[in-house]
């Protein structure tokens, strides 16, 4: 079995998100980018499947800020191949465009299974995985919390609200949107990532052109939400804050003897 895991670099949400001059996107140039956390979950699930079945795992990333780090980390963790798709992605691309590029690449890689993060923080026009499946005409299961071998195919655990889970058997090639791997993503030491980087082996190829979208979304503007119930922000140091909070909790009659 050949598993492909597309990995996306996304804005680190802890950063201050400044807008571009047009106010239609974040100012990407100065932002810090990290691997989409759900793609990391997808990679972990792929590595677990590799351990269980001897599958091979290929990670694929667009040439976005710090993608080398992400791809080499995946190799250090156990991915067999890493493919970087070169092109100009600095201005960001839509999920539909990403899905279109990946669809062409995944076909070329002869994948039996695509595991991809269930979402990313930038999915304004939808999640990449389900768009990819729709583009390829492949079956898809979203919000998966486990993928295991099952009667020659796979068995996917799909999570619903309040913790209800469905098990679904899937035959043949499919795309699965991973919410969480069966175990927390494994840790890999920086030194091992450096070793992988020194060994090299990242396969670089030109990213294919995305297909034209029929009628793409038009972004009018991005803005910080107007806060509806602005929190009262407490000033002072932690001791002052604790004092005020304790008082507030006491005033509500919530302190029990």
């Amino acid at each position: 079995m050949h598993i492909v895991v597309p990995m996306k670099q996304t804005v680190d949400l802890v950063e201050e998100l400044e807008l571009n001059d047009e106010g239609t996107d974040v100012e990407r140039e100065y932002l810090k980018f990290v691997a989409n956390e759900w793609d990391e979950q997808a990679l972990e699930e792929a590595l677990l499947l590799k351990e269980a079945t001897g599958a091979s795992v290929t990670v694929v990333g667009l040439d976005e800020a710090d993608v080398d780090q992400t791809l080499y980390a995946a190799v250090a963790k156990g991915a067999d191949r890493a493919v970087k798709l070169t092109g100009d992605f600095e201005g960001g691309i839509t999920s539909h465009q990403r899905a279109s590029i990946l669809a062409q690449v995944v076909q070329g890689l002869d994948a039996d299974l695509v595991l991809i993060g269930v979402q990313s923080p930038e999915d304004l026009d939808g999640q990449t995985g389900v768009l990819l499946a729709g583009t390829l005409g492949l079956p898809h299961v979203s919000v998966a919390i486990g993928v295991e071998p099952h009667e020659g195919g796979i068995k996917v655990s799909q999570e619903f609200g309040a913790g209800v889970v469905h098990e679904i058997a899937v035959d043949g090639p499919a795309v699965i949107g991973i919410q969480a791997a069966r175990q927390a993503p494994r840790y890999v030491a920086i030194s091992r990532i450096r070793q992988a980087m020194q060994a090299g082996g990242l396969e670089e190829r030109d990213a294919p052109e995305p297909a034209e979208e029929g009628s793409p979304l038009k972004v009018r503007r991005l803005f910080a939400p107007e806060v509806t119930s602005q929190a009262e922000m407490l000033s002072g140091d932690a001791e002052d804050v604790a004092e005020r909070l304790a008082q507030l909790i006491a005033d509500r009659g919530l302190i029990k003897a």
């Binding site: 304004l124 026009d125 898809h140």
Partner: peptide
């Protein structure tokens, strides 16, 4: 935008080639 919706919205957008506004 439930599990069901995350399954359908994108798939339908891709299959019917219509735009999607998520979240």
């Amino acid at each position: 935008n439930t599990t069901v919706g995350m399954e359908l919205a994108g798939a339908l957008s891709a299959r019917t080639r219509t735009p999607l506004a998520a979240y």
